[in-house]
């Protein structure tokens, strides 16, 4: 009979085998018991974890998609997009709008479905539809992450003083906030709504680089990156090499005509791979013809400072 050298290591006693089995069972049950007892705090930690990770994801999305208009810190951009890191926005905006849902559903709705341009709005720029369900680029989980990120400002925003609040209503436009402040000061008279949408005839023409930001172009068009298949782009095509590609888009249209048409009538030619109706179609009313021409020249300048 061949027995290996280490045969004395074999456990032969049935009692020892039973003891090992019972010990293993006890260890298993004890550890399982420990896991069960701590399940509630573990689930709480996991819930907080996934909420935190969602906020992290939302922060990255906000930086690349929303910050160009709404500002790096959610402070908004004058004439383009409202502040979100704002006490007013968190505390009174929904009341003033007459919106009955929650702050989060308001954000989800606005990000997903966008905002149609309003005749009496102080915001010249139309919020794009961001959800894939409405033709935008983002998935539902990304929209949820964005909403979580935006709402994460609440804790510090509600501590803002009136001076710190970046919410800046247009002159002469009642956003409601003025009314609230007036009411708090004991004044009941509110300022009437006026139409600021029309272009002021007397004002100096605005510079193209100012227009590019104020009209919200920068929200969807990257000025520095070239327009080709390999470079990632925002909602609209990149404009880095516009001078080279503009003349090749529509047969019979030179670069100036093409860019001009693209601004005043964006749907006349939509680049393949992009969606129609995303770009506002009322720029001809928002800018004077001189301003538009200057913008076209500036966009087509290959040496435009970046």
């Amino acid at each position: 009979m061949h027995k290996p050298l280490y045969h004395y290591l074999y456990i032969k006693s049935p009692i020892a085998k039973i003891a090992i089995g019972i010990l293993a069972l006890v260890v298993t049950l004890a550890v399982l018991g420990g896991i069960i007892v701590t399940e509630v705090p573990r689930m709480e930690a996991q819930t907080a974890n996934w909420n935190g990770r969602s906020i992290e994801k939302g922060a990255a999305l906000f930086a690349s998609n929303c910050a160009p208009c709404h500002g790096d810190h959610g402070q908004g951009t004058m004439n383009v997009a409202p502040a979100l890191n704002s006490k007013y926005w968190f505390t009174h905006r929904l009341d003033d709008l007459g919106y009955t849902g929650s702050q989060k559903s308001y954000v989800l709705l606005t990000v997903a479905a966008g905002r149609p341009s309003k005749v009496n709005s102080q915001w010249a720029q139309r919020m794009a539809t961001w959800s894939r369900n409405y033709g935008g680029p983002l998935r539902d989980d990304q929209i949820d992450a964005l909403a979580n990120y935006i709402l994460n400002w609440q804790e510090s925003a509600v501590e803002q003083t009136d001076e710190e609040d970046p919410w800046q209503p247009f002159d002469g436009v009642d956003t409601g906030w003025a009314g609230v402040r007036a009411a708090e000061a004991g004044i009941t008279e509110t300022v009437g709504i006026s139409d600021t949408q029309t272009v002021s005839e007397t004002a100096e023409p605005r510079a193209p680089e100012v227009l590019f930001v104020n009209m919200g172009c920068s929200g969807c068009h990257n000025l520095n990156e070239p327009q080709d298949e390999n470079t990632p782009h925002l909602v609209g095509p990149n404009l880095g090499n516009l001078a080279e590609v503009a003349g090749t888009k529509v047969p019979g249209e030179d670069a100036e005509t093409y860019v001009h048409t693209s601004i005043v009538a964006p749907n006349d030619f939509v680049n393949p791979g992009y969606l129609p109706n995303l770009m506002p179609q009322n720029f001809a009313e928002q800018m004077t013809p001189e301003e538009i021409n200057a913008l076209v020249t500036w966009l087509l300048d290959p040496n435009r400072p970046q």
């Binding site: 089995g21 399982l32 896991i35």
Partner: peptide, 20 residues
């Protein structure tokens, strides 16, 4: 039977402790 049962119980215990 005893060999196999105590062996499988031990493996289960190791797995549970490992996961924990």
């Amino acid at each position: 039977f005893l060999d196999e049962t105590s062996f499988l119980l031990s493996v289960t215990a190791i797995m549970v402790v490992w996961v924990a």
